[in-house]
Amino acid sequence: MAGIVGYGVQVPLRRITVEEIARVWKKDGKKISAGIGVKEKAVAAFDEDACTLSVEAARKALETAKIPGQKLGAIFVGSESHPYAVKPTAAIVGDAIQASPELMAADLQFACKAGTAGVQICLGLVKSGMIEYGLAIGTDTAQGRPNDALEFTAGSGAGALIIGGKENEVIAEIQDTYSFTTDTPDFWRRQHAEFPQHAGRFTGEPAYFKHITGAVKGLLAKIKMSPNDFDYAVFHQPNGKFPKQIAKSFGIEEKKIIQGLITPMIGNTYSGSSMIGLCSVLDIAKPGEKILVASYGSGAGSDAFSITVTKNIENKRAKVPVLEMIKEKEYADYAEYAKHRKKIKGL
């Protein structure tokens, strides 16, 4: 048996509404907000980055797992906004949570699915007996070019999962995982470029939908299950609309994805997105319930997971559930947002 033994989420305090961003660019905010299914997004403060969000999420994960940092054998931090181009975020996180120095650590990048790639690596290391516990983090302070469609959704947040293999500790067993990857240029950011580029509508059908469909179908065929065998489903959520559409295509009822659909309240947290969604489901899921998770990373690929909640979850839930945590917020106007995200020249 191997699976999740602890989980934690960190979301910055500040929010900016889609309507406020639209006001600056003289667009119809209400219409855009309804169209993308996102009301507001979380904004990292000037003194926050993918690393600080990771550390806070990791600390919460250690708290729910009830293990000290020293027990971690590996840390993988997935992000597309690592603070350094060269120097691992994972090493900083490892030191901050006192997991160093006997530690395997690396940074991962696969657009929005680098966090779940870390989960897969940890799962392999735990199952092979190479480590006792592994920490996988999906974290981002996503960049959106001013007046670009992505600016309405590019949010900040981190989700952390600790993977272990002890039967009396696993709160959600990961039965299997399956990945689907192709070379698809739907979204990218070149070396030294400040903002990513995307291919507009091309990011939908041949990218998000094709890859998640491929991963989920592959997984279900492998484990001989159908979409309706799951009590909850969490899909990558670049906006509030895509996850609902993909759920519908599998015949999954909308009520099964609502608990894990966090993007409408905090925006797309990129590598954190599907991980935070899964953490929110773990906040309420009952023993025996099954969760289908499929991340998506542009470029492009999807990792699908079949997860079953165990009885251990009852005494290992997060102190503050995700949906409760994100209620603590403070609104920023566009000027304040531009200051915190260093979009003003000279900062």
Binding site: D47, E56, A96
Partner: peptide
């Protein structure tokens, strides 16, 4: 206690993290 950036004024320099 929180883990935050304390100083990040040199875009090519090392970031100083610490407590707030």
């Amino acid at each position: 206690k929180l883990f935050r950036k304390i100083s990040d004024i040199d875009p090519e320099g090392a970031i100083a993290y610490g407590y707030k």
